[in-house]
């Protein structure tokens, strides 16, 4: 089996198990990904398992020499990267959704929508945690401690500006990370989430400036392309809102 089709950090032992084991009890991403899963099924008997992770690549949630928390390498790195961002977004929206004066601050309809967004982000976060726990046990990024500038939750202006910043950042992060993913199933999942983030971003932009859902500052006028950012660029920024120091140096890097 090709090295670049297997999720790094997956439980290689499952390959040796009988093929009749129900999928749901297996490492689900190997199957969810269709290509990787199916080829693994068909070719299980005639291909070698990939090499173990090279020791010089950090595992997810390990501590690096400078005391940072590594997001890990390969696809696990990408998933932990997404998980970190979803932790931040989910935390932010949960705080907004819990505001006792939310309806008067944001408007009743808007507040209700923010509560929906809070659920979406919580689901994203918890989904990644579940997926990582199953597929990359031992490499799941720990719970992070988000932090915000003073006054973030005090006014509609700062809440909306922060939401817009996070959503646009999230979209750019997923857009930039897609090509680092090796497993098609992970890519499909990322695609399923990023479009929802883009919907959030468009909605919040419209709340701030009606009609700015895909304004020229976000979508290049000539090419019609949305923003894409590298993990390094995104983490440099996201770090401002996360107490723990994160290292994403090996995201997408395979042995």
């Amino acid at each position: 089996m090709s090295d670049n089709l297997q999720p790094r950090g997956s439980d290689d032992a499952t390959f040796a198990q009988p093929l009749y084991t129900p999928i749901k009890r297996r490492s689900f991403f190997m199957y969810a990904g269709a290509t990787a899963g199916a080829s693994a099924l068909v070719l299980a008997g005639c291909s070698k398992d990939s090499d173990p992770v090279k020791p010089n690549l950090p595992t997810g949630n390990s501590t690096t020499a400078d005391g940072s928390i590594s997001l890990g390498s390969g696809d696990v790195g990408v998933l932990n990267y997404a998980y970190a961002l979803e932790q931040l977004e989910a935390d932010f929206y949960s705080k907004v959704a819990a505001l006792s004066n939310g309806a008067s601050l944001l408007g009743a309809t808007e507040f209700a929508y923010f509560q929906q967004v809070a659920k979406h982000e919580a689901i994203h976060r918890d989904f990644f945690k579940a997926a990582l726990t199953r597929d990359a046990a031992g490499q799941v990024l720990r719970n992070l401690t988000p932090k915000y500038p003073a006054g973030t939750f005090d006014s509609k202006t700062t809440i909306l500006a922060t939401a817009k910043a996070f959503e646009d950042l999230g979209v750019a992060a997923y857009n930039g990370a897609g090509k680092l993913i090796k497993t098609p199933a992970y890519l499909v999942i990322a695609g399923q989430i990023v479009s929802v983030e883009a919907r959030h971003a468009a909605y919040i932009r419209d709340l701030i400036t009606p009609g700015s859902f895909a304004a020229d500052d976000q979508v290049a006028a000539a090419s019609g392309l949305d923003m894409a950012m590298t993990p390094k660029e995104v983490l440099n920024t996201a770090q401002n809102f996360i107490t723990e120091k994160l290292s994403g140096d090996s995201i997408g890097v395979n042995a």
Binding site: P149, T157, T158, A161, T162, K164, A165, F166, L169, D217, T237, N240
Partner: peptide, 14 residues
């Protein structure tokens, strides 16, 4: 100003 005074740079000004 939009990029200079941004939430993400912790310099947000409305």
């Amino acid at each position: 100003f939009a990029s200079l005074l941004s939430v993400l740079r912790l310099t947000f000004v409305s």
